[in-house]
Amino acid sequence: MATIRVRDWTKKQIEEILEEESHSSHDSVIKALLKDRELAKFAGTDIETEESTSNADQQPPENKAFDELTVLSEMYRADNDVLFLWCPNCGKELAHLTLENPIDISIFEMECQRCLNHLDQHVIIAIEIGYPIEEKLVEDNLQADLKECTIDYWDRHLEQSTENTVTEESAIEQLVWQFDQYVRNFQWDWPDDVPVVGFEAGDTLHNKVDDELIEVIEPVTENRNALDSFEVKRYPEGTDPNEARTEIMDSNMIANLIINRSLYLEEDEP
């Protein structure tokens, strides 16, 4: 007998119907639904499928920094079915894609041939036709826009991730490590009005939730694919840092502070 694969969402709905209507099996539920569909067709009722419902529910991200610049991960529709992909680090066009709407890209990876950075869907920028790219190139503002678009996406994405379940926490922590690596590889100066996405020796960070300063001294682990733990000094704002003791801040605590958007880069005193 042939096996039919269904999405987790569909399976959950079938199981709920099975319990509510006291069906004897999943097969019984599906047969009943098929009968309902035939009756609806006979009566002239329009049946809306799961796919069409999900497509109708798709909305553009709110509060994006740019209308025509979008990080590939949150791209859902392209003007004229065409996307131009750019590297936010060096400002090189990576490729252009012709594809059908709606767009759903869960994984996309490629290497920039100019700066040789390995990029994925959380950093590649899709430029749409409405963006004034020639004008931006003449004014030498393109790379600044690409950087701002990327930072804006990272900030919003991590802020939204605070609503995720416990089972998704490890994936978010891995994403924090990935964003941190991008910032290091790109050698970007981080804006002081946006919470940081990484943790680097030599930085002084302001935890605005607890109103304390954190001097990042050095890593005490050498993780290859995860955040490190660090030796730090923590002290209330306005107190003498020389009186603070050093301590070890583990990677889980660091990840939580970053995910909760608590840490801001402290400006160096002149």
Results as ranks from 00 to 15, higher is better:
A2F: 10
T3W: 05
T3I: 15
R5A: 14
T10C: 10
T10Y: 09
K12F: 10
Q13I: 13
I14R: 07
I17H: 12
L18R: 14
L18P: 02
E21N: 11
H26A: 10
S28P: 01
I30S: 07
I30F: 07
I30K: 06
I30P: 07
R37E: 14
E38R: 15
L39T: 05
L39F: 01
A40Y: 09
K41R: 12
E48D: 12
D57R: 06
P60V: 01
P60I: 00
K64F: 02
V71M: 04
V71R: 02
L72N: 05
S73T: 08
E74F: 04
M75Y: 08
A78V: 09
D79R: 13
F84C: 11
L99H: 10
L99R: 14
L99C: 13
E100Q: 10
N101A: 07
P102S: 09
D104C: 11
I105N: 02
I105E: 02
E109L: 09
M110V: 05
E111S: 11
R114D: 15
C115E: 06
L116Y: 13
L119D: 02
Q121A: 11
Q121L: 07
V123D: 08
V123E: 10
V123S: 13
I125S: 00
I125D: 01
E128Q: 15
E128R: 15
G130Q: 09
Y131C: 00
Y131Q: 03
P132V: 06
K136V: 01
D140S: 13
N141I: 00
L142R: 00
Q143Y: 00
Q143R: 13
D145N: 14
C149L: 02
T150K: 01
D152Y: 07
H157N: 06
H157P: 02
L158Q: 09
S161T: 00
S161P: 00
E163Q: 14
S170M: 11
A171I: 06
A171F: 10
L175P: 03
W177V: 02
N185K: 15
N185L: 12
F186I: 09
W188R: 03
D189H: 13
W190F: 12
D192K: 11
D193P: 02
V196T: 11
F199P: 06
G202A: 02
D203N: 13
L205D: 00
H206Y: 12
N207V: 03
N207G: 07
D210Y: 08
D210C: 08
E215N: 08
E218Y: 12
P219I: 04
T221N: 11
E222L: 06
E222P: 03
N225K: 11
D228F: 02
S229L: 04
F230N: 03
E231H: 04
V232Q: 09
R234E: 08
Y235I: 00
P236G: 05
T239K: 06
D240C: 03
N242F: 12
N242M: 09
N242H: 13
A244M: 01
T246P: 02
M249K: 03
A255Y: 00
A255Q: 00
N256V: 01
R261D: 05
L263G: 01
P270G: 03
